[in-house]
């Protein structure tokens, strides 16, 4: 498991870009963390690194957003960005068929995927959390205050499950060394 520190949104984007540089078709990446912890920011940095030019917005109400990757991007054909926040039942998750999207040339980012983690096969989990700011009197950043959140510092914990991530682990650790 990697324990990283991001001191700005740019850092969160850079961490996401480093993970994206080692991702490939078939990957499922679960984004965990409370509201405002930076899950969508991570997805934005990730998508931009793969060449997605359209704005990446939260798929909370649409469940899955799919972005065709440029043909020059040989890593995968499509980036899928899912959000399970609105779902109540495991069959609703199954009906999204996220594993099928991954299997067919896709990289799938799944916000709140950790709540049904056991239903996924090989996957990477990225847990984001806001850092308690000592200067602000030791209080945790208020997730409702957007400005505060967007500038807040974050802990990013990355863990891989399964052989496909184990095989890449050293390279991932190396790519993220500067944030350790």
């Amino acid at each position: 498991m990697l324990q990283l520190r991001a001191s700005s949104v740019a850092d969160t984007h850079a961490i996401a870009a480093a993970v994206a540089s080692l991702a490939r078709a078939g990957d499922m990446i679960l984004l965990a963390g409370e509201m405002g912890a930076g899950k969508t920011a991570f997805a934005q940095g990730f998508g931009r690194a793969l060449g997605v030019e359209e704005p990446i917005t939260s798929p909370t109400y649409t469940l899955v957003h799919s972005y065709d990757l440029p043909p020059s991007q040989r890593r995968a054909r499509t980036l899928h960005h899912a959000d399970l926040y609105r779902l109540e039942r495991t069959t609703e998750v199954a009906e999204l068929a996220l594993a099928e999207l991954a299997e067919f040339g896709g990289i799938v980012l799944i916000e709140w995927g950790d709540v049904v983690e056991s239903t996924f096969g090989d996957h990477l989990t990225v847990l984001l959390s806001n850092v308690i700011d000592d200067d602000a009197g030791g209080e945790e950043a208020d997730p409702a205050a957007d400005e505060l959140v967007s500038d807040s510092r974050r802990h990013v914990e990355i863990a891989g499950v399964g052989s496909s991530w184990a095989a890449r682990w050293e390279r991932i650790a190396w790519a993220l060394e500067q944030f350790a």
């Binding site: 399970l84 779902l87 109540e88 039942r89 069959t91 709540v115």
Partner: peptide, 18 residues
Amino acid sequence: IYLRAPDAQINWSTRAAR
């Protein structure tokens, strides 16, 4: 006919902020 794992309530209890 999906013929998959039985349906269950997603456990959101650990997600107090939701």
